[in-house]
């Protein structure tokens, strides 16, 4: 196993760069980070729409979130990769396609996390802000959201872990993320597949386990400050 690591660690980390596009573990992390960073504002907006008092906003968004959450991520990727170019006329590369799919998919899940965070806040907070004379928008912005987002932080870190795992599906459209690279290495080495895939698993494990421990620590720290979500079990878990 050690010779494999020795020979291929650079390829594993950054793919063919600089002789080709960026790949490997760095690409995985880049894709996951960009995906979550872009999905977050969209997710917050969708979450706000889900709790808004206006039906014309609530219903379409609820429908959208329902559909996206009922489909496998792979389906969303296929739509983005095969169908979108025929509609828009623009053929996007694998990274962009994967990014679009991740942003749309994760935003739908984040919308639910945001909604749970907002609804988990005691009703008195919104009421008090309104009683002081703040309008709905300002009350949301200054009182409800700051508390909700803070209490959602552990869920958001867990969502980041899910997003990292979701990037693995880029494999199917030929994106050179770390799982794809592992298979490329396997094709070259040929005789040690178990070891190669164990290394792949270990890489993901270290990354994701580290992050989920961080989320756990965050949750405990927030609980001490009296700011954890009322019922974290009700915020849905994503597995992919």
């Amino acid at each position: 196993m050690l010779e494999i690591i020795n020979d291929y660690w650079v390829y594993f980390l950054i793919g063919q760069y600089p002789n080709g596009p960026l790949g490997g573990l760095v690409l995985t992390l880049l894709l996951a980070s960009c995906g979550l960073v872009l999905a977050l504002p969209l997710g917050v907006m969708l979450g706000l729409a889900r709790v808004s008092p206006w039906r014309w906003l609530r219903w379409p968004v609820t429908g959208f979130v329902f559909v996206v959450r009922g489909l496998p991520l792979l389906m969303v990727i296929f739509w983005a990769y095969f169908f979108l170019p025929s509609v828009t006329g623009v053929k996007t590369d694998q990274f962009t396609t994967m990014l679009i799919a991740l942003v749309v998919f994760d935003a739908a899940y984040l919308a639910e996390i945001v909604r749970a965070g907002i609804q988990g806040l005691p009703r008195g907070q919104m009421e008090t802000a309104r009683a002081l004379g703040l309008g709905y928008g300002r009350a949301m912005r200054l009182v409800v959201l700051p508390q909700s987002l803070r209490s959602m932080l552990p869920s958001l870190v867990n969502q980041f872990v899910s997003t990292i795992k979701e990037t693995s599906l880029g494999y199917i459209i030929g994106l050179a993320e770390v799982s794809f690279i592992a298979t490329q290495i396997n094709t070259q080495v040929f005789t040690k597949p178990a070891q190669i895939y164990l290394i792949l698993g270990l890489t993901y494990f270290i990354l994701c386990f580290g992050l989920s421990r961080f989320a756990y620590w965050l949750e405990r720290r927030l609980a001490r400050r009296g700011m954890s979500v009322a019922n974290p079990a009700s915020a849905p878990k994503v597995s992919a």
Binding site: S168, Y171, S179, A194, I196, Y197, Y204, F205, A240
Partner: peptide
């Protein structure tokens, strides 16, 4: 729980299809 959950399902599938049978 922690080992399984922190590795993507795709990697699991690749392992059980490409890796495990060789063992």
């Amino acid at each position: 729980v922690e080992v399984i959950r922190n590795v993507p399902l795709l990697a699991h599938m690749l392992f059980w299809y490409f890796g495990a049978p060789e063992l």
